[in-house]
Design a binder for these strands. Structure first.
Lengths: 125, 125
DNA sequence: ATTACTGTATTAATATTATAGTACAATCAT
DNA sequence: ATGATTGTACTATAATATTAATACAGTAAT
């Protein structure tokens, strides 16, 4: 699984990591027992400080989402985060709200956006 | 439109304000030209400092979501019909590209987004 | 025991957020 | 022109959140 953080989003790095791991689990890309990148490796990949990764992993462990074992690594736990369909819907709402706000500031309507997306869909099929 | 902030959410006040205004626009409750509460009034309503409201409004203006006019107030952004068609199309492409990138990082497909937008459309009609 | 990897802990530095206070400037109704 | 309302600008301060630096400790393979 690939990780990406957006420094301009205003969302703290460690929270972005947490979100991505939760969603990775929700969509089945990460399953129980899977090993996460090491603290140092992910820090290098994202060009951030290892402690920032530590913080993300630790919060996830407190929630029971991951198991960490000193010396061997951090793994996806048995207890799945309560993210499911509701959380996914919330994220979709968030994304669409941002999209529409941005579109409207350029005089683009919901219909314009819908039309644009339909074209994308055709183009990709 | 009523505003509410949750001090316990961990989300900065100014960001909560921004979110609520964007959401209001997205669901049609706030339309172009509508006037937002004054800086001072909203500060009183939410029991926060006026500067915090200022910050929210300023960020929204930078994004082009609202227009502020000293002396008269802050308004939902005026659309700019003088943008030519080509520029509009280019902007739409950009917005959609950004949208899909963000959506896919959360495991949301183009189809998910389309579906979400259709719901918005129904809700607003 | 050594080596190289893992996470852990503590402290320090920096950035962000929120508040307070004060003064200024544009707009509008009168 | 006046007065009331609007947003703007600036400084200062404090609290909190976030990130960084550095040293420590467990695990596993050799």
């Amino acid at each position: 699984m690939k990780f990406l953080i957006d420094p301009k989003s205003g969302v703290p790095f460690y929270r972005q990591i947490i979100e991505q791991i939760k969603f990775g689990i929700a969509r089945g890309e990460l399953a129980t027992g899977d090993r996460l990148p090491t603290v140092r490796q992910l820090a290098v990949d994202l060009s951030i400080n290892p402690n920032t990764v530590v913080r993300a992993y630790r919060e996830l462990e407190i929630e029971g989402v991951v198991d960490t074992q000193q010396g061997s690594g951090t793994f996806i736990g048995h207890q799945k985060p309560e993210i499911d369909q509701l959380e996914k819907q919330r994220m979709l709402d968030q994304i669409i709200t941002d999209l529409l706000a941005r579109a409207s500031s350029y005089g683009l309507s919901l219909e314009d956006v819908l039309e644009g997306l339909r074209h994308r869909k055709e183009a990709s099929s």
